[in-house]
Simulated scan of single mutants.
Amino acid sequence: MQLLQEASQPRRQLGRGLIMALPFLGPLAWLLHDVLTGGESPAGNKTAFGPLMSKLRFLNATFEVPLSQGSFLLNLSGLLGFVALVLCLMTLRRRAGGPRLRLAPTMKGPIIAVAIAALVSPTWLNGVALVHIRLPLVLMLLFLAATRWEGVSKAQARGLAVVFLALLVARGALVERYAARHDAEINDLLAVLQAVPPGARVLPLRARGHQRDLRLSHVQGYAVSTRSAFVPTLFLGVHAITLAPRWKDYAHPALFALDECFTLPDTCYPAEIAPTFVQDWQQKFTHILLLDAAPSYLQKLPELTPLATVGRFTVYRTAAGLG
């Protein structure tokens, strides 16, 4: 778009643009062929635009750690960074006088295009969820690369440097603490998974009330890479993973680890709403991986044998695991 807008020879510039696009044509053609000729995806083909407010909210996605416990200060630092960015954006309207940002003229087209794409991105696209959270980070990085300060005195430059350096250091320190905590928990997970025999069928569960803590949503995948185990939540149909037909009732294409109540019909939820893969779990899965240290209903089930607990994680063996 920008090439054609500024070109004195539009056809030549269009040719240059097409040449630049060549590396992307092969993967795009493969994707289209796979979508049009492949069998029905286990993940379905749901496509939904979603409410407009979800798009506006996720413009802040770059600065937020959503639905994670213990992230208040991290989110607060992100909010302060977001406010600082908005205040900087407001200086774009200044014509003269005082510090102001200037946007490179050649970058207006790309920024507008990415901003529009971020706003119109669907929340679901062909069975893939949360598509709309991908572009806000790209938009922010593009904006940072496309702007420069003008009309800034030395004193103002020092003030701006102090403010942004303080935000950067605070944010970096909080991210490091957050990452260190997560790293320690993953080490605990790797340790507890040593109790899982190779080739086991592992059902990941959350303690009651913890299912919406999404920080550990997919950590059960480590059982696949470290213990060659089967887990039921590997994004079948979204990633290049094919499940043998006889295992179709053992898996789900897009779920996280479930609330433990689904293993106890009618305890917390009506039995009929339990996903297919968790029905008859005693026969389908040889082990259970509990992702939380909170009091659990599983501790009361006589058919489960606790094998190991490390940190917040516990591995249980089911009756099927004795065979």
Rank of each mutant, 00 (worst) to 15 (best):
L160Y: 05
V231P: 03
A240W: 13
T226H: 13
E150L: 06
R212K: 13
P275E: 14
T242N: 10
R201C: 00
A166Q: 05
F143T: 14
R206N: 12
L137D: 03
H252A: 11
I273L: 09
L264K: 13
A200C: 03
Q156D: 06
Q211D: 09
L189R: 08
L243G: 02
A251H: 06
L214W: 15
P253T: 08
A155F: 04
F235S: 13
Q211E: 15
L236D: 06
Y269P: 00
T147Y: 08
V192C: 01
L190C: 06
A180D: 09
L236P: 00
R148K: 12
P270K: 11
H182Q: 04
A223I: 05
F262D: 04
L141E: 09
A240P: 02
A257Y: 08
H218W: 15
V152Y: 10
K154A: 14
D188L: 01
V196S: 08
I241Q: 12
V192F: 05
A274S: 12
V152T: 14
L203G: 09
V224R: 12
V152G: 02
G159Y: 05
R206C: 01
A195L: 06
L205G: 00
S217P: 00
I241W: 15
K248F: 07
A200Q: 10
L168G: 05
A251M: 08
L160F: 09
Q156V: 04
P270G: 04
V238D: 04
A271G: 07
Q220E: 15
A161Y: 10
L236E: 09
G172T: 03
V219P: 01
P197V: 12
P136V: 09
V224Q: 08
Y250G: 00
L214D: 09
A146Q: 09
A146F: 11
A145D: 05
D183W: 06
F143R: 11
